[in-house]
């Protein structure tokens, strides 16, 4: 077993939802620093809601969120970003009518640190450098996903929340995305909460996993030999 490290993200008893409904009802989850945790689960089980709640985009109804032991419950997205959180959303994730460059610029508050940040993400996805003035909406599905991930890496976050980054993406691109995530983890010790439905991709990068069902964590564990079979048990019909 891996030695338990310092806890990066601690979610305790989180309850959140829309309108009259609780989509997530009491989730607790801890991720050690420097690890990638894959959060699996079928559609509509609350994975995106969890990420939005942590990111300050949905008001929490109950529970606390801690980052490096500091209570960050109820912080605004701006404050969380400044504190080292990053977010790669799934729903309406890009400004379709803005160029690649403008989409990336919007991750930063001013243009001073733009050049080095661009250099870093171009290292993972060189095609971006050649097409800076192309509108994001004209990119293919896989290219858009790479742009979303790049933007979330512009500020070099300590903790990255990633929502279904491999959805509808061809295997070769999934591999490049995996390389970028692992690269940042190894280089800077970034921690990742990876919401996924692609089991193969998730297990190829994650250190640990958890399965979400009907707003609760159903089961969780290390990424060991039995992981695939245990997760499949929850995902199959």
């Amino acid at each position: 077993m891996r030695e338990a490290g310092r806890t990066k993200l601690a979610i305790a008893g989180l309850r959140s939802g829309y309108g009259a409904t609780d989509v997530i009802a009491g989730i607790s989850l801890e991720i050690p620093a420097g690890e990638i945790c894959a959060l699996m689960g079928k559609n509509g089980m609350g994975k995106t809601t969890l990420l939005k709640s942590v990111m300050g985009l949905l008001p929490l109804r109950e529970g606390r969120v801690g980052l490096d032991g500091e209570d960050i419950t109820g912080w605004t997205p701006a404050r969380l970003l400044a504190r080292g959180l990053g977010y790669a959303p799934q729903e309406l994730p890009l400004f379709q009518d803005l160029t690649i460059l403008d989409n990336l610029r919007l991750a930063l508050r001013d243009d001073r640190a733009l050049a080095p940040a661009l250099e870093r993400v171009f290292g993972y996805f060189p095609f971006l450098a050649e097409r800076l003035n192309q509108k994001a909406g004209t990119l293919s599905g896989g290219e858009q996903k790479m742009l979303i991930l790049s933007r979330s890496l512009m500020l070099q976050p300590d903790l990255l929340l990633v929502d279904e980054i491999s959805e509808g993406v061809q295997p070769s691109v999934v591999q490049r995305i995996a390389r970028a995530l692992l690269g940042e983890c190894e280089r800077r010790g970034m921690t990742v909460l990876l919401v996924e439905q692609n089991l193969g991709f998730a297990l190829s990068v994650a250190h640990r996993w958890a399965v979400l069902k009907l707003g609760h964590i159903q089961e969780s564990g290390e990424n060991d030999a039995a992981a695939h079979a245990r997760i499949m048990e929850h995902l199959k019909i």
């Binding site: 985009l57 701006a78 959303p89 994730p93 890009l94 400004f95 919007l106």
Partner: peptide
């Protein structure tokens, strides 16, 4: 919504 998520 996205602008807010990006800290604007």
């Amino acid at each position: 919504a996205l602008a807010r998520a990006l800290g604007i």
